[in-house]
Design a binder for these strands. Structure first.
Lengths: 241, 241
DNA sequence: TGAATAGTGTCTCTAAGACATTATTAT
DNA sequence: ATAATAATGTCTTAGAGACACTATTCA
């Protein structure tokens, strides 16, 4: 049998029906704390619960492209740091049918995060309270950034969020992801604040400066931050993240 | 509309048809070099080419369970270190239809690797020649362990294999994965050889011993390796990988 | 001048690399 | 004894942490 003949007789349903989605963890900082943007589900299943923005993967669409489209359609954002996290496929995770979801992590600079949180698209900024117990990670607790109570997520989205935090923490000090949470020009203090927030531990200032500068990823802009009532810090730009 | 009513009317085909598979990179060591077990495809598409063992995900099956089943059915192995790697979903990666594949990494101790390579199941041990150029990783070259020429893989399996090597290298020194490539009892020299092979660089012996022993993952068995014509080395066991 | 933070100099401490030395086995 | 490798002691070196000190701006 030739390959063409084989393809003509191939039955796509022979192995059962399932659907593929992407779910995107939109991570940023809100008032110096890690936060995620959530969407209220207004359709079944789990209508009324908070969830990660997600969507079905188009038949002719790359996984990365699907994640980018979700970002655009649900949050009006593009050009962000976006990376695949992990694929969640437990049979009972969605009551509709077998839905396997490829989770993505998107990182938003503080300004984009704040803007997306109040653009009327229904995105809720939720503060992530991480119990930084050891390296194992663990379940994360969520609460409304506007001061509301604790939030619970739909499906297995709490697991996805926890994994996103873990991944971010793991990559922080060797991979330039930290820059994706800052504006284009930033001070070393801002960079250190980001690292301390994500790692959940204070860092030594001289050592942090040395490491960052020796790494060669930072380029001084020559400009300094304005509006301070003290010595204005140098603004840096990321060269090679 | 209630959730039950919604589920009754939900159309699983509304977003297009696709299939989900798992592909498993069976990594081990062969004569001190990294190697993978490959299967010759005897069905279309790409019949006659070498490929990673894989299979479709059952409708009621966990992704991890599917990978475990592939391992059992295609290589007769179980109880191995098995972890999800990445999901490959480019639309054209398989000519049959849209097939998205969740890639897994399995690690085999040297004995299991050798046995699986000659059990008649058609698994070919292929040496992986990695150009260790920097941290970026890159395409890997494959050749028949029996001395044959270079091998080319079907589909995008070369990319999957390259990612597997990269992941293994990255996790080696902070995660106990190295133990999964050794027998239950091993010497420190064997452990160092594994690390040097995977990392592609020689390591300092006293420093390596110090690090490994200080980590607390190793437990001396009291026994020593037999059959040496010199001072027999202590055999260790992994306590907490 | 005082307050506040930026930015740096320097000492200490830890861990890795280099290298030599001792230990233990078989022949 | 000799050969071969295991296992360790020690010196050096690189980098992180601690801490204090200087620098620069605004009020």
């Amino acid at each position: 049998m030739s390959e063409d003949a084989f393809l003509a007789t191939y039955d796509p349903d022979a192995y059962g029906r399932l659907a593929l989605t992407v779910d995107v963890v939109l991570l940023g900082l809100r008032d110096g704390r890690p936060a995620a943007l959530l969407l209220k589900r207004d359709e079944h299943p789990q209508a009324g619960h908070w969830a990660l923005p997600g969507g079905f993967v188009g038949v002719a669409e790359t996984l990365d492209a699907a994640a980018g489209r979700v970002l655009r359609e649900k949050a009006g954002l593009s050009g962000l740091h976006l990376e695949q996290l992990y694929t969640f496929g437990a049979p009972g995770r969605d009551p509709r049918m077998r839905i396997v979801s490829v989770a993505y992590l998107a990182l938003l600079p503080e300004a984009a995060f704040t803007a997306a949180g109040r653009n009327g698209a229904g995105l809720l900024p939720a503060i992530i309270d991480v119990p930084w117990a050891g390296e194992a990670g663990g379940p994360v607790a969520l609460r409304d950034a506007a001061g509301g109570g604790p939030l619970t997520l739909a499906f297995d989205h709490a697991d996805i969020l926890a994994l996103a935090m873990l991944r971010l923490r793991g990559k922080l000090d060797y991979s330039g992801v930290g820059f994706a949470l800052l504006p284009e020009r930033f001070t070393l203090r801002q960079l250190q604040d980001v690292h301390e927030t994500i790692l959940g531990t204070p860092l030594n200032k001289p050592a942090f400066r040395r490491r960052m500068l020796d790494r060669g990823w930072l380029e001084p802009t020559g400009a300094r931050e304005a509006g301070t009532s003290f010595r204005p810090p140098e603004l840096y730009r990321c060269r090679k993240p």
